[in-house]
Computed example of a mutant assay.
Amino acid sequence: MADKKVGVLLSGCGVFDGAEIHEAVLTLLYIDQLGAEAVCMAPNINQAQVINHLTQAETDETRNVLVESARIARGEIQNLAEVTADQIDALILPGGFGAAKNLSEFAFKGPQGAVNGQVKDLLLAMLAAGKPVGALCIAPATVGMALSEKSPLLTVGSEEGVIGALAAIGVKHQLCTVDEIAVDEANKIVTTPAYMLGPGIKDVAIGIGKLVQKVLEMA
Score class of each variant (00 low, 15 high):
Gln33Leu: 14
Pro132Tyr: 05
Pro132Glu: 11
Val65Thr: 08
Leu147Val: 15
Lys150Phe: 07
Gly164Phe: 00
Gln49Phe: 04
Gly134Gln: 10
Asn44Glu: 11
Ala85Val: 12
Thr155Gly: 08
Ala182Gln: 05
Val133Trp: 04
Ala146Met: 05
Lys150Glu: 07
Leu211Arg: 08
Gln47Lys: 15
Lys4Leu: 15
His173Gly: 03
Glu159Leu: 12
Ala167Ser: 05
Leu123Met: 13
Val67Tyr: 02
Glu217Gln: 15
Pro111Thr: 13
His53Val: 06
Glu82Trp: 04
Val65Ala: 09
Val215Arg: 06
Ser11Met: 10
Ser151Asp: 01
Ile77Val: 11
Glu20His: 12
Leu175Tyr: 07
Ile163Thr: 03
Val190Gln: 06
Met126Pro: 12
Gly117Met: 04
Val190Thr: 03
His22Gly: 14
Ala141His: 02
Thr84Gln: 14
Leu216His: 08
Cys137Ile: 14
Ala81Thr: 09
Pro152Asp: 12
Asp89Pro: 07
Glu185Gln: 15
Glu76Tyr: 11
Gly200Thr: 11
Val204Cys: 04
Leu66His: 09
Gly110Val: 06
Ile163Arg: 10
Ala100Arg: 07
Thr59Ser: 15
Glu149Tyr: 08
Pro132Asn: 08
Leu54Trp: 10
Gln49Tyr: 03
Asp121Met: 12
Ala38Tyr: 01
Leu154Lys: 10
Ala186Cys: 01
